[in-house]
Nucleic acid binder design. Structure first.
Lengths: 141, 141
DNA sequence: CTTGACCTTGGAGTCGACTCCAAGGTCTAC
DNA sequence: GTAGACCTTGGAGTCGACTCCAAGGTCAAG
């Protein structure tokens, strides 16, 4: 029986057998050969493909985007333009997320500083609630 | 029947009735009075509490952390110190996430720039794969 | 008395990328 | 021939904060 089994293929790219099967289910890997007994058998091209997938993931692409690129590639077309598009799309998403988190962090910094230097809710009256958490009319998180 | 029903309470803080019920389930809201027919009935303190929850969320705290703070508060203790701790904890998480995303974005920028100026995979040989996605030995995304 | 707008509950679905499971089949070494 | 390490499948669980659902109950207005 020649060809790599799931965990062997996985080992070649540093992923688990489960992950290989998962990618297979999503159609990211080339159509599998199967042994008589139903084992998936992969070749060197599959190793390259799997590494390529991991590389694309490391660049921040989503599996759904990678799947698209693979379809283009398997259709014999050049995926270069599409790849740049996919990366730009992700870049915009990531940028938005960074902006959101950065604003949050700055708010937190201010609140932490206030909380550390402030005299807490002292004198504690009815309800002791830290200043930064005092109810405001309508809050959109 | 006096007291606010779920959607009325929600409206007072800009959240949906579903969200109010969800917070109730998580134990974030004070124990509810119920009408004879089983309707939740809230008072002004609940409005303040709900706004407080939204405020805490807007500061980046998780509902699980907020729940903890509420327990302290309901136990009659001052939650100030705990609040600063919770915020610091989140700050660290958010910081790590920003760092991760920033590195990703920088990588993407470089790859996009290379992809736009480069001559793609021209000349397209066997397998046309954009440079940035060329398989590398082992990739941890 | 009916319509329609609310309320109740428990539970499932969403997003993404896995991870883990059970029940069964296969392969290799001793 | 049997142990133990693999493989197969479909499906469920994870994280977080909701959102939506169905099936049924309640309430005020016309």
């Amino acid at each position: 029986m020649d060809g790599l089994k799931v965990s062997q293929l996985g080992a070649r790219a540093g992923v688990s057998a489960d992950t290989v099967r998962y990618y297979d289910r999503l159609g990211l890997l080339p159509a599998t050969e199967r042994s008589e007994s139903g084992y998936r058998l992969y070749d060197e091209r599959a190793v390259a493909r799997l590494r390529q997938i991991r590389q694309a993931q490391a660049m921040g692409l989503r599996l759904s985007q990678i799947a698209e690129l693979m379809r283009t590639l398997d259709g014999g077309e050049c995926p270069c333009e599409e790849t740049v598009e996919a990366m730009s799309e992700r870049r915009a998403e990531i940028d938005a997320e960074i902006a959101r988190l950065t604003a949050l962090r700055d708010q937190l910094d201010a609140a932490i500083a206030a909380g550390e230097t402030g005299e807490c809710c002292d004198p504690c009256e009815d309800e002791c609630v830290p200043e930064v958490l005092r109810p405001r009319k309508e809050v959109n998180p």
